[in-house]
Design a protein around this nucleic acid. Structure first.
Lengths: 169, 169
DNA sequence: TAAACTGGTTTCATATTGAAACCACGTTGA
DNA sequence: TCAACGTGGTTTCAATATGAAACCAGTTTA
């Protein structure tokens, strides 16, 4: 009985983020929102996904406070889906995915859309991971420190949090 | 008849990237690979996903040249899954997701793992999108320019590439 | 006032996911 | 030496998610 595996309570922020945004449509919906798309039918036309799926994804994104519903600005009957601050903060994620895609998912001569800055119409700079002094870090120069159990007051002291079910799946 | 919608040939690099990495497991497998995980059973134990799914995801990641299979370093019978350069280039994507998760998916007092730089054990700096001169850009200061049809030699001249099926779905 | 559009929901078929059983091979270790 | 165990899977089958299409109520538009 496969119920969807969830990482909602994971201690790893990547896992939680993937839990929320790690599907085939949510990130593309947010991308379109950055491009100014606001209405159901626009999303649907642009993305070419089924209406029921779009409906369900929009509902989830609103529930996660990534999009919010606003009344139509012209007083019309419909409403809009707009990015919240939490949604706008996905900008870097989208840019990183875009840059990786540009670098690795297109043939050399193949054209792709470009992210330009409004001021001088030039491509955005390549993102880099840096230390707190601004020095560029490659993957081998960083590591993940697992959450440290609260010192001297650990509730479930010795028991590893990594313990998992022991069935053979 | 729902066959999986694909964005393989999209002109938008984000769409292609999501097509490859936009599922519940691929990014987490790559995350674990960054943490030094190499073996089938380690991935399985760490992620707690079913073996058939892991098997299929590893196969896809290898097919996409994000992971590669290497012989066991100790000459053993098993083999390893190691990141390729294309896989290592996902580092920024993972870091951006991590930072978004840290900022928006944890309660204030709730502990989470941390990405530190090896040199001085301090958290990595927050990623920022900048223009080509290094000036920080917020989402409203950038825009996507769609691929421009080759000037003066457009093959399918007037036909919009955004045309989609017209059925009501 | 009828036609078209908007923003959905419902229905139903197919695809994907997940758990568990199974399996071949290699290694321990008694 | 041979039984038990671990590894790295594949197979089977049930449950869930996705997608296409039909449907629908309310709103514009002609």
């Amino acid at each position: 009985m496969p119920q969807r595996v969830t990482h909602e309570r994971a201690e790893c922020p990547v896992a939680r983020a993937v839990d929320v945004m790690g599907d085939r449509w949510s990130l593309l919906i947010v991308r379109d929102a950055f491009d100014g798309i606001r209405r159901f039918s626009e999303f649907q036309r642009n993305l070419g996904l089924a209406k029921n799926i779009l409906s369900s994804r929009l509902r989830e994104l609103v529930a996660h406070d990534i999009l919010e519903i606003r009344p139509a600005p012209d007083g019309g009957a419909y409403h809009q889906y707009a990015l919240t601050q939490k949604g706008r903060d996905l900008f870097v994620v989208l840019v990183s995915l875009r840059q990786w895609g540009e670098d690795h998912l297109f043939e050399d001569a193949e054209p792709h859309s470009l992210l330009l800055d409004t001021k001088n119409n030039r491509p955005v700079r390549k993102l880099e991971v840096t230390d707190d002094a601004g020095r560029v870090l490659n993957p081998s120069e960083a590591f993940v420190r697992k959450v440290t159990k609260a010192r001297a007051s650990s509730p479930t002291h010795g028991a590893s949090q990594l313990t998992r079910s022991h069935v053979d799946r």
